Simulated assay, not measured.
Amino acid sequence: MTEVWILSGKEPGVNYRVQVYIPEQPPQSERGYPVIYMMDANYYFGLGTEVIRNQSHNLLKTGIDPAIVVGVALDAEDSVIRERRFYDFTPPAPVYTYPDKMKGKTTGKHGGAETFLNWLTDELQPRIIENYPVQQDKQCLYGHSLSGLFALYSMFKRPEAFQCYLAISPSIWWNEKHIYSFLSGAKDSKLFISVGEEEGFMVEDAMALYHRLPSTMDENTSYYVADDENHASVVPATMSRAFRYFFSC
């Protein structure tokens, strides 16, 4: 069963479409279901729910439990969603530097990750916990590309908000790798970071960040390069592996 909410964001006129998938099977824990929060739900919510639905029926072999999937996306036209991603998922910074590939074009507003993170943790998470049987110590945040960058930012800034962070092809390049300035906030969070073999410099970026994580995260971090996958194909190629990592934690 999937329920859909339209919730107001932190700013006037900004609304988010929240999709909540509830499994047919009862939770494996008496404390409730694990929860996966999926960013960019307009792209990935359907895929995420199908992975949970199909594989949780054979959890002894797949390692994937019945879980609630919460998909979050701006409630707007696709073009507006694409531009808004550069605001919601990028960290605040005093100065922004754009890469040559953008050819001098800006992306509209950006640097709103803290505002979006506050909405996610202060408003959406409590609402999910209030309305569904949730295992509060088994929640993860999933993001790809810019939302993968947001997953890293969230882990560094609010490591206690989720027990696991799944960052797929994170846009570490953004603003000359400004994400490194938040590394000191890393604790002992559990992190799955993955990238497609065909993603060029993003493979090097992901590996470099992986090696710069504090030693306290060594045993809690999984780094995976998906053979023959590119920036788009890496999502379906790694989603089961990412989810299995979460459930194994």
Rank of each mutant, 00 (worst) to 15 (best):
T216W: 03
F150R: 08
M217N: 07
I179G: 01
G185L: 07
L183P: 01
S222F: 10
S189A: 07
M155Y: 01
N220A: 08
T216R: 03
S145Q: 07
Y223C: 12
L141T: 01
L209P: 12
A161C: 08
R158K: 09
P159T: 02
A226W: 05
A167N: 05
G196N: 10
G200M: 06
S147A: 05
E229M: 13
G148F: 01
T221G: 07
W173L: 03
E219L: 11
H178Q: 15
I179V: 03
S171I: 04
L166V: 05
L146I: 07
R241Y: 11
H231C: 04
Y153A: 02
T216Q: 04
S145V: 10
E160Q: 14
F156M: 10
D228Q: 15
T221Q: 07
V235G: 02
M207W: 13
S154P: 03
S169W: 01
D227W: 13
A151G: 09
E204T: 15
S240V: 13
A232M: 14
F243H: 06
S233R: 05
K187C: 11
S233K: 04
E198T: 06
S222L: 10
Y210P: 14
F201E: 03
S184W: 15
A226K: 08
E229A: 14
I168N: 06
A208R: 13
P170Y: 01
S145M: 03
S145N: 06
N220S: 08
D218A: 09
M155F: 05
H231W: 05
A226G: 09
A208T: 15
W173S: 02
R241D: 09
H231A: 13
G196H: 05
A151E: 02
H231P: 02
M155N: 00
A151P: 08
K157N: 06
V225T: 15
H231D: 08
Y210T: 15
N230G: 12
S222C: 11
E198D: 11
S240R: 13
H178G: 12
V234I: 09
N230Y: 07
T238I: 09
A186S: 11
E176M: 13
S145C: 09
W174R: 02
M239F: 13
T238Y: 10
H231G: 06
D227V: 14
C164M: 12
T238L: 09
I179N: 00
R158H: 06
D188A: 15
E229L: 11
Y165N: 04
L166Q: 00
M202D: 06
S181V: 08
Y210L: 11
L191Q: 00
V203C: 13
V195Y: 00
A206D: 07
Y153N: 00
H231K: 07
L141P: 01
H144I: 04
A186N: 06
E204P: 11
E199D: 03
T238V: 08
E229P: 12
A232Y: 14
